Amino acid sequence: MKKVLLLLIEGFEFYEASVFIDVIGWNMMEGDQNTRLYTCGLSKEVNSAFGQKAVTDYLLSDIVIAEYAALAVPGGFGEYRFYEQAYDDAVTKLILAFHQEDKWIASVCAGAFPVAQSGILSGRSGTTYNLEPGMQDQLHQMGVQIRQEPIVTDSKIITSWNPSTAVEVAFQLLGHLTSPENAATVKALMGFTA
């Protein structure tokens, strides 16, 4: 069983988190049945952007990295305090540990910022929210070689532009964890054009 850890940071976007829940869950039901997703955060209850709350399965301090195959990092809004937790030492250490153990890390939109903060994107290709140039400039200042593409993969790290890319990032992650053929099957069963 390949376990995926979904990191919920204060101010995260529910849509960007939900695509991982659904794609990994659909695989468990209709695909190769070899994935399961768990959530974690700095607290058991995490406020999302727009004011909804989520209850996590685990605290970051409970996580045993060796048990997981991948980490998913949805983005969020600064107005909802996303960056306050995104740059927390515990978040940085978690991301760095996943990378050091050669695990997949998939981020969506502003989820690239805590990934970059860990230092693992330094000198590598990546991207983030593309409709506000200042955000890509900020990511570049963190050592990332910005590519003007919706989804960028470099050294088992996936970054992407905006919420519209989220579901494709989840399918790509599933393809890396299982097989491209399995991911295409799940994608078709979910009603997406393969």
Rank of each mutant, 00 (worst) to 15 (best):
T127S: 11
K187A: 11
F113R: 01
Q145W: 04
L71I: 11
I105S: 01
R81S: 11
R36P: 00
T193E: 13
M29D: 14
G75K: 01
A112F: 08
E132W: 11
W26C: 13
T165V: 09
T35C: 15
L42P: 06
P180K: 07
V91K: 00
L5C: 08
V23N: 04
G143S: 13
M28K: 15
S179R: 07
Y68R: 08
D32W: 10
L94W: 01
L6H: 10
I63Y: 03
V167T: 15
P150D: 15
R36N: 12
N182R: 10
L42S: 10
Q33Y: 13
L60Y: 02
V19K: 05
F14Q: 14
N162E: 13
T185I: 14
F192W: 14
V55A: 06
I65A: 08
L60R: 04
L173V: 03
E67V: 03
R81H: 11
S155W: 07
F192I: 11
Y83W: 07
A66I: 03
E181I: 14
S125C: 12
V64W: 02
G119I: 10
A72Q: 08
E101F: 03
K156M: 13
L5I: 04
E149Q: 15
G123T: 00
I63S: 05
Q138A: 15
Q100C: 04
D102S: 14
V19G: 07
T185A: 13
S164W: 08
V19N: 03
Q100H: 13
Q145G: 01
Q172V: 07
A69V: 11
A90G: 02
S122Y: 14
I151E: 08
S160N: 06
F192C: 11
W161K: 12
N34R: 14
W104K: 09
K53H: 05
I9F: 00
I151R: 10
K156P: 04
G119A: 07
Q148E: 14
T128I: 05
L37T: 11
K93S: 13
